Simulated assay, not measured.
Amino acid sequence: MAEPLAHHRPGGKPLGTAATRRGVRTAERHGSGRASGSAGIIRVASVPANHVYVRHLSPPEGDRVTRLADPRPCGAPSGSQQWWPPVMLDPGWVDEHADTFDVFHLHFGFDAQTPEALRELLGTLRRNGKPLVYTVHDLANPHHLDEGEHRAQLDVLVPGADRLITLTPGAAQEIAARWGRTATVLPHPHVVEPAGLLRPRPRNGRFTIGLHAKSIRPNMDPLPVVRVLADVLPELPGAVLRVDCHPDVDDPESHWYAPGVLDELRRMSREGRLELSVHDYFDDDALWDYLIGLDVSVLPYRFGTHSGWLEACHDLGTTVVAPSCGFYAQQRPCLIYEHDRQGLDAASLRDAVRTAYAERPAWRADPVERGAERFRIARAHEAIYEALL
């Protein structure tokens, strides 16, 4: 799993469509039921399968649901866990593998697909008698500055899916208002593995406020947030501000190039206003070490919907200060400041950080309840699949 968790959907070249179809299967030939020999098992073509959110849709001991492994994309290194761009989104793959799955479940990874390509995918699923479940993680894509492309994709997927799932009541209300569809609300399962839910938090005497700018995705506006955090720091005895960033934002050849950002952060670091750490993506263990070492994690988003980062912080007991955009406060307990496409309200951010410092909220997930919640989420998915079949 890459550092940005449920919201890391690397783009890729459009998969296109197959010019020829081998072994085209129709609904008349196969019907909508399960293939013979799959007694009691529900086989799901999940896009993706090897992502922590999807893996945790099943309980640790397993259940009736089995998810197909992600096909290796062309050009991906042998033995790698790379799932993007998802091969299953090619209608040709659906035609050739229709007898290997019962339900198609889309989560994310369709960033590079045109609305026309998604319509063809839906048509191919219908022709093969395969129901589509779509979990609406993002109503605004954090990787797209322009909302138009993602809206056009949603205008195909949301009306075309047989069943819809989303993570919060607010997202479900927006889906109902925009498309007249009902989405089942199921919470995000835990992100950190069960053993990590029991990990004790460190005690070092410092109050560490963290902001991770990552590679500065289009939905991030870190510098205004960092400036406010640095200004409020002198009011908080013993507090430090840690800012992390990936080096590609300083590379003119990189897709993520953000000129001037690291220059300002380095200047503020030299002035003693923050501690700057520039590094490549964390692996899972390094990410958990980073998050559990923070008292507060500030999300510098100006648009978005849900957050896997917030879920990981909840697993580890790190307080989150989240923006008012999206539905973060409906996901897990957090402090909210005003930040959206129109800009940042500095006073609300200062107040949220002061509250976190003064009150030290204890919002860590209970490991037993997190496990029980995962079981309930798994059973709810199984029931949705079964009803469709």
Rank of each mutant, 00 (worst) to 15 (best):
R206F: 09
I209V: 15
N219I: 04
E193Q: 06
P222S: 06
N204V: 07
P194N: 05
G196D: 14
H212S: 04
R206M: 03
P222A: 08
T208A: 01
F207N: 08
P218S: 09
A213Q: 04
V185G: 01
L211K: 04
L198M: 06
I209F: 05
H190Q: 11
T184P: 00
M220Y: 15
R199T: 14
T182R: 06
K214Q: 10
F207P: 06
T184E: 06
P187D: 10
N204Q: 07
R206E: 12
L198G: 02
N219H: 15
P218R: 12
R217I: 07
R199W: 07
P187E: 13
R206Q: 12
P222T: 12
P189V: 12
R201A: 13
S215A: 14
D221A: 15
G210N: 07
R203P: 00
K214M: 12
P189R: 14
H190P: 03
V191R: 11
N204Y: 02
R206I: 05
K214L: 14
N204W: 10
V191G: 00
L186Q: 08
H212Y: 07
L198I: 02
T184I: 11
R217K: 15
N204C: 03
V192Q: 01
R206N: 04
P222C: 09
P202Y: 04
H188P: 02
D221G: 01
P222E: 10
G196V: 07
A213W: 01
V192P: 00
R203A: 15
A213H: 02
N204T: 14
P202Q: 08
M220Q: 15
L198W: 11
H190W: 14
N219W: 05
F207Y: 12
T184W: 00
P194M: 11
H190I: 12
H188S: 04
I216T: 09
S215T: 12
K214V: 03
P194T: 08
A183K: 11
L198T: 12
N204D: 15
V191H: 13
H188K: 10
P194G: 05
L198S: 11
M220T: 10
S215K: 05
D221L: 13
G210S: 03
P194V: 12
L186M: 13
H190Y: 15
N204S: 09
P200T: 15
F207A: 06
G205H: 06
P189Y: 14
P222Y: 06
R199E: 06
D221F: 12
V192S: 11
T208P: 00
G196L: 05
N204M: 01
I209G: 00
T208D: 01
S215P: 00
K214E: 13
P202W: 06
A195C: 00
P200L: 15
T184D: 01
